[in-house]
């Protein structure tokens, strides 16, 4: 979980950084240039396969662990005061992950399917134009914002948890890792969530 998680975390930095170019408010010129590069560069295209493999491994591993861990307590407690000893999102990584997977299916259908598997992507109809069209629907915007909230909490636990699992817990560095993890989770999810909102309210053109 930790290795694939950190790999996906590194991917999110690239994804978020590239998409944030829409806020340059240049009509998507920089964004489309970046998207063109990501869609044609052979190294990036190879990494795309590695990315899907990493994502799949993360899902399969998580599912296997969830099923396995469930068996370890055949008779459930009648009363559980979970809030007394841990954060709710640290106990709900499977649920948050499932919500993220559902969101990802919608998200991939919107943009990955459009740009990679159809011939609809042209000079006249760019990926930026597609974002403008998709984010006109308030329901889609709400789904995206909820997806980003799930992502934020998943990362809030996942980031520091990955370091702990790999044995990188040191009194000197652990507080820094936890702070960076919290900042990362908030910045990434807030930046992503601001994109559909900005399009919907026509804050960027």
């Amino acid at each position: 979980m930790a290795t694939t998680g950190l790999f996906l975390i590194s991917f999110l930095i690239v994804h978020c950084g590239l998409n944030a170019t829409i806020f340059l408010n240049d009509g998507g010129a920089a964004f489309n240039e970046g998207a063109e590069f990501m869609g044609t560069n052979p190294i990036i295209r190879t990494m795309e396969i590695v990315l899907f493999a990493g994502l799949l491994l993360h899902i399969v591993d998580g599912l296997r662990l969830w099923l396995d861990n469930k068996k370890k307590r055949p008779v459930a407690y009648a009363v559980v005061d979970g809030a007394a000893n841990s954060k709710w999102y640290s106990r709900s990584m499977g649920l948050l992950g499932t919500l993220l997977l559902l969101f990802l299916i919608i998200h991939l259908k919107h943009f990955w399917y459009f740009s990679r598997l159809t011939n609809d992507l042209t000079e006249a109809h760019t990926l930026y134009n597609e974002m403008q069209i998709v984010f006109e629907s308030p329901i889609v915007v709400i789904i995206y914002v909820l997806g980003c909230i799930s992502l934020g909490y998943h990362l809030l636990h996942g980031f520091q948890s990955a370091f702990q699992s790999l044995g990188w817990n040191h009194p000197k560095y652990a507080p820094t890792i936890k702070s960076i993890g919290a900042i990362y989770a908030v910045v990434i999810s807030a930046t992503f969530a601001s994109m559909p909102i900005a399009f919907y309210f026509h804050l960027i053109h």
Partner: peptide
């Protein structure tokens, strides 16, 4: 037949002797 660790930290919070989860990282 014990389960896997998902780093919730509940064990450390409930341990009557205050054993730290830094030990889990060391074990890993």
């Amino acid at each position: 037949g014990f389960g896997a660790c998902s780093n919730t930290g509940a064990c450390e919070a409930e341990c009557p002797k205050g054993i730290s989860i830094e030990n889990i990282a060391r074990m890993n």
